[in-house]
Amino acid sequence: MGGVQPVLKAIYRLAWKDVMADFRHRSTFSSMLFFSVAVLLVFQAAFEPDPREAQRLVPGLLWTTVLFTTIMGLGRVFQSEEENGAFEGLMLAPLPRGAIFFGKWLGNLALSLMVMVMLVPLTLILFNVTLWSRVPMLLFLLFLGTMGLTALGVLLAAMTQTARSRETLLALLLLPLVSPLLIAGVQAMAVVITSGDLSGPWLNLLLIFDAIYLALAPWGFGWLVEE
């Protein structure tokens, strides 16, 4: 029984190390946050929605912004290891490969969630949408979607880390694969906004997507880094 707890602890420490290192040196967090604001600005300039339209656009707006912002964060998941040549060292750690994956995933998820917590109110303010009572539900849906999104994303980031023009490649691979997640997320959010109802088939699809990718991505990661 003693086997599980040290692994969980290692996952947590790996994630914590990444988040702290990010706050200190790499500042992925702040660039993600300001990038997401810039995306909102672009949307506003491109569509100029009035408040009624904006309310209809909010789900798509939030999800697209989250998607682009997450891709930006994912591009840096393995960057510090790549720069210091520490990737091999990380792989030599006496840990199952799945645990390394989950550590990296958790760190990235934490950063993305912190961005989202600020992004949702910012969007409502900038687009003059009064949906304050729905904020917890919106955040919950984004949280669910981001779990699957970053699970697949961290795997693809590991896949493309040694490739040339890896950030373009990451976006090219990730966007088509997460399209079901985007459809389900936008639809579930539209339901929440119009009826305040947090259930239904789209939520189930989100959960299914999360379950599939959280189960399979560590396995794929194990194959990928195998010597």
Binding site: M159, T160, T162, A163, R164, S165, R166, L169, L172, L173, P176
Partner: peptide, 11 residues
């Protein structure tokens, strides 16, 4: 296209 690009991208 992604599969082709990934293979071409990794040396």
């Amino acid at each position: 296209m992604g599969i082709i690009a990934l293979r071409n991208g990794i040396d």
